[in-house]
Amino acid sequence: ETFPLDVLVNTAAEDLPRGVDPSRKENFLSDEDFKAVFGMTRSAFANLPLWKQQNLKKEKGLF
């Protein structure tokens, strides 16, 4: 299941849709939104070091 970017960005855990893991908001973006937000594919993002993934998520309001 995916959700629009505005539902996930800068949203407190208690305000997220049911079933969304607040530590993994990026997994609930569509592939198109994911690429638009991070400028890379999911596989490229997954290959980044964890610290870099976290920094990007913070920068984009998805942490």
Rank of each mutant, 00 (worst) to 15 (best):
E1A: 13
E1T: 13
E1Q: 15
E1M: 15
E1G: 11
E1H: 13
T2S: 09
T2W: 13
T2R: 07
T2H: 09
T2V: 10
T2F: 15
F3T: 03
F3I: 07
F3Y: 15
P4K: 05
P4E: 05
P4T: 09
P4S: 08
P4V: 03
P4A: 08
P4W: 04
L5W: 08
L5K: 04
L5A: 04
L5G: 03
L5N: 03
L5H: 05
D6A: 13
D6Q: 10
D6H: 15
D6V: 08
D6E: 14
V7C: 11
V7L: 15
V7H: 07
V7A: 11
V7N: 05
L8V: 04
L8W: 01
V9C: 08
V9W: 07
V9G: 04
N10H: 10
N10F: 07
N10T: 12
T11S: 08
T11N: 07
T11A: 11
T11V: 14
A12L: 10
A12W: 07
A12N: 11
A13E: 15
A13P: 15
A13F: 13
A13M: 10
E14P: 09
E14R: 05
E14F: 02
E14H: 09
D15R: 03
D15H: 08
D15Q: 06
D15W: 05
L16Q: 06
L16I: 06
L16Y: 15
L16H: 05
P17F: 02
P17W: 03
P17M: 02
P17T: 01
R18A: 15
R18M: 15
R18L: 15
R18S: 15
G19Y: 07
G19N: 08
G19S: 09
G19D: 08
V20L: 06
V20Y: 05
V20D: 07
V20S: 04
D21H: 06
D21Y: 03
P22E: 08
P22A: 10
P22R: 02
S23V: 08
S23W: 13
S23K: 11
S23P: 04
S23C: 15
S23F: 14
R24C: 09
R24V: 08
R24E: 05
R24A: 09
R24D: 04
R24T: 07
R24K: 14
R24Q: 10
R24H: 15
K25S: 05
K25E: 04
K25G: 03
K25N: 03
E26D: 03
E26R: 00
E26G: 01
E26I: 02
E26M: 01
N27S: 09
N27V: 09
N27R: 08
N27M: 13
N27C: 13
N27P: 02
F28T: 02
F28P: 02
F28V: 04
F28Q: 06
F28K: 04
F28L: 06
L29I: 09
L29G: 01
L29F: 03
L29W: 04
L29Q: 01
L29A: 01
S30T: 12
S30E: 03
S30L: 03
S30M: 05
S30R: 07
S30W: 01
D31L: 08
D31E: 12
D31N: 09
D31M: 07
E32Q: 12
E32I: 11
E32L: 10
E32Y: 10
E32N: 09
E32P: 09
E32R: 09
D33L: 04
D33P: 00
D33R: 01
D33E: 09
D33F: 01
F34D: 00
F34W: 03
F34G: 00
K35G: 12
K35I: 14
K35S: 13
K35P: 02
K35Y: 13
K35R: 13
K35A: 14
A36R: 14
A36L: 15
A36G: 09
A36V: 13
A36Q: 15
V37R: 02
V37H: 06
F38N: 00
F38P: 00
F38G: 00
F38D: 00
F38A: 00
F38Q: 00
G39H: 13
G39L: 12
G39F: 09
G39K: 13
M40E: 00
M40G: 00
M40H: 02
M40Y: 05
M40D: 00
M40K: 01
M40R: 01
M40P: 00
M40W: 02
M40N: 00
T41G: 10
T41A: 09
T41Y: 04
T41N: 12
T41F: 06
T41I: 10
R42Y: 07
R42S: 04
R42H: 07
R42D: 01
S43P: 11
S43K: 12
A44Y: 10
A44M: 11
A44F: 10
A44L: 10
A44Q: 13
F45M: 01
F45W: 09
F45E: 00
F45S: 00
F45H: 00
A46C: 08
A46P: 00
A46M: 14
A46F: 11
A46G: 11
A46D: 10
A46S: 13
N47L: 11
N47E: 13
N47M: 11
N47G: 11
N47A: 14
L48W: 02
L48E: 04
L48Q: 06
L48M: 10
P49W: 00
P49H: 04
P49D: 10
P49S: 09
P49E: 08
P49I: 01
L50A: 14
L50C: 12
L50K: 11
L50N: 10
L50D: 10
L50P: 13
L50I: 13
L50S: 11
W51D: 11
W51G: 08
W51K: 10
W51V: 11
K52R: 13
K52Y: 13
K52G: 06
K52T: 13
K52P: 00
K52M: 14
K52Q: 14
K52N: 10
Q53F: 00
Q53R: 11
Q53H: 00
Q53T: 01
Q54G: 07
Q54K: 14
Q54Y: 11
N55T: 14
N55L: 12
N55I: 12
N55G: 13
N55C: 13
L56D: 01
L56G: 00
L56E: 06
L56M: 12
L56V: 07
L56N: 01
K57W: 06
K57Y: 04
K57R: 08
K58W: 09
K58N: 08
K58H: 09
E59S: 09
E59M: 10
K60Q: 10
K60R: 09
K60C: 10
K60M: 09
K60N: 14
K60I: 08
K60D: 01
K60E: 03
G61E: 03
L62I: 05
L62V: 04
L62K: 02
L62H: 03
L62F: 07
L62M: 06
F63W: 15
F63S: 14
F63M: 13
